[in-house]
């Protein structure tokens, strides 16, 4: 449920670092808490994101949640497919349900995030 190769933040986003490009999405815990996703509102390529700041929204029938960036950098790609198929976030949150790709300013920021074990412990504490 929480892939070992990913990093996680306290707002339930995951990060996959590939060189200096980080792919960001929401965790299985987050998609389960939200329920069936009906809208994903994402920023545009070229926009800057900053650590801890909102970069978009994910909305289910019952609630809406802000998406917070776990890192700082510039958006190089957004998952446009989510516009027509927001349910992908529920079905495959770690792969097809990714949200943005960011060229990170400082890869050490990614390293400092929680690993899967820490994140799982964090969720257990929160629940």
């Amino acid at each position: 449920m929480y892939p070992k190769e990913l990093k996680y933040d306290r707002e339930h986003e995951w990060v996959r670092l590939d060189g200096d490009v980080a792919t960001i999405g929401i965790s299985d815990f987050a998609q389960d808490q939200l329920g069936e996703v009906v809208y994903v509102d994402l920023p545009s390529v070229g926009e800057a994101v900053s650590t801890g700041e909102s970069f978009g929204e994910v909305e289910s029938v019952k609630s809406v949640s802000e998406l917070f960036s776990p890192i700082s950098g510039e958006i190089v790609e957004v998952n446009e497919a989510l516009e027509d198929a927001p349910e992908t976030v529920n079905e495959d949150c770690y792969n097809a349900g990714w949200m943005i790709k960011v060229k990170v300013e400082d890869t050490a920021e990614v390293e400092a995030l929680m690993d899967a074990d820490d994140y799982e412990a964090y969720i257990a504490e929160e629940a």
Binding site: G35, E36, V38, S60, V61, K62
Partner: peptide, 9 residues
């Protein structure tokens, strides 16, 4: 109960 399987389902 607010939902079981999911609201849309």
């Amino acid at each position: 109960p607010v939902q079981y399987a999911g609201i849309i389902e």
